[in-house]
Amino acid sequence: MMFSLLRRPTLTWSTLMKDVQQNHRSTIYSKPPKENIGPVQSFFAICVFAVTLLGPAGWILHHIPDYRQRSPPQT
């Protein structure tokens, strides 16, 4: 489909987008979840995610004064 659209001699961006939108068919199917996730599991997952992201940043920010007192590495 896409190759035939690109071979047109007078193809512009707007006509390409119109053709793609007209020929688009959704291929994503979904079903309801088999098991519902409770609030405890959600809270735990959010906490682990936050600690994973914010832990290293907090460590670095906490130790900035130590980093400033060090002498620069000698090369």
Rank of each mutant, 00 (worst) to 15 (best):
H63Y: 09
C47G: 06
A57T: 08
W13M: 05
L6E: 03
Q74L: 07
P65E: 05
L5Y: 13
R8S: 12
S14Y: 03
T12F: 07
F49S: 14
Q41H: 04
P56A: 04
L6H: 02
R7W: 00
T27V: 14
A50R: 06
T27L: 13
I46R: 10
T10P: 01
R68G: 02
G55M: 14
Q21V: 06
P33S: 13
S4F: 07
L53S: 00
V40H: 08
M1D: 10
P65F: 03
S26E: 09
Y29Q: 10
P56M: 04
G55E: 10
R25S: 13
S42D: 05
V48D: 02
P39I: 01
V48W: 00
T75A: 06
L16W: 12
G58N: 12
W59E: 05
Y29S: 11
Q22D: 10
I64D: 01
V48H: 00
T10W: 05
Q21A: 15
R68E: 12
Q22V: 07
T27N: 14
Q69H: 12
W59R: 08
K34S: 12
P56G: 07
S14G: 06
P72C: 02
G58Y: 11
Y67N: 01
S30C: 11
M2E: 10
Y29G: 03
M2N: 03
V51H: 04
H24E: 06
R70H: 02
I64S: 06
Q74W: 00
P56I: 02
G55K: 09
I60V: 15
L16S: 09
R25V: 09
F49M: 10
Y67L: 15
L54P: 00
T52M: 06
C47Y: 13
W59G: 01
Q22S: 11
R7L: 05
L53Y: 10
Y29A: 15
P56D: 05
T10G: 13
P65D: 07
E35Q: 11
H24D: 00
Q21Y: 09
H24V: 03
L6Q: 04
W13F: 03
P73M: 01
S14E: 07
P72E: 05
S30R: 09
N36K: 12
W59D: 05
K31R: 13
L54H: 07
L16A: 10
